[in-house]
Design a protein around this nucleic acid. Structure first.
Length: 112
DNA sequence: GGGGTGACAATTC
DNA sequence: GGAATTGCCACCC
């Protein structure tokens, strides 16, 4: 295992483990918070390699959608875990806890 | 070393 | 909002 991966993984796990319940972070945000800007694409690998359970499902795309195919089991699993924590969805898009979504709902309408 | 591959991101149209 | 494009960088043939 390369030294880089060891250090990178540890920092990423640390960041992801610190995401509070009911909140989400983007892959890029996690990478930045871990001290590795521009390593968004490496984050998924770090999550997969975690030796113990992490709230991996609290990591989503920068556009606040789930990274898996909408038809996949993984997608449904992640969505369910998030809803379980009180995360609200506007269609496939996650509504941030502190965000005011009234405008979007007026413009696009409920997507459920 | 070369080329393809991502649980991505930012920009553009 | 969506689709296409480009940048990104460790990893694995």
């Amino acid at each position: 295992m390369s030294r880089f991966k060891q250090q990178f993984d540890r920092r990423v796990w640390q960041v992801v483990a610190a995401i509070p319940s009911g909140r989400v972070m983007g892959y890029g945000e996690v990478a930045r918070a871990a001290g590795f800007p521009r390593y968004s694409r490496m984050v998924s690998g770090a999550l997969s390699r975690s030796p113990e359970p992490l709230p991996w499902y609290r990591v989503v795309r920068s556009d606040r959608t789930i990274a898996f195919d909408v038809d996949s089991d993984a997608y449904r699993e992640q969505a369910q875990l998030l809803k379980q924590e009180g995360v609200r969805f506007d269609g496939r898009k996650i509504v941030d806890a502190d965000a005011d979504d009234s405008l979007d709902r007026l413009l696009w309408g409920p997507q459920d």
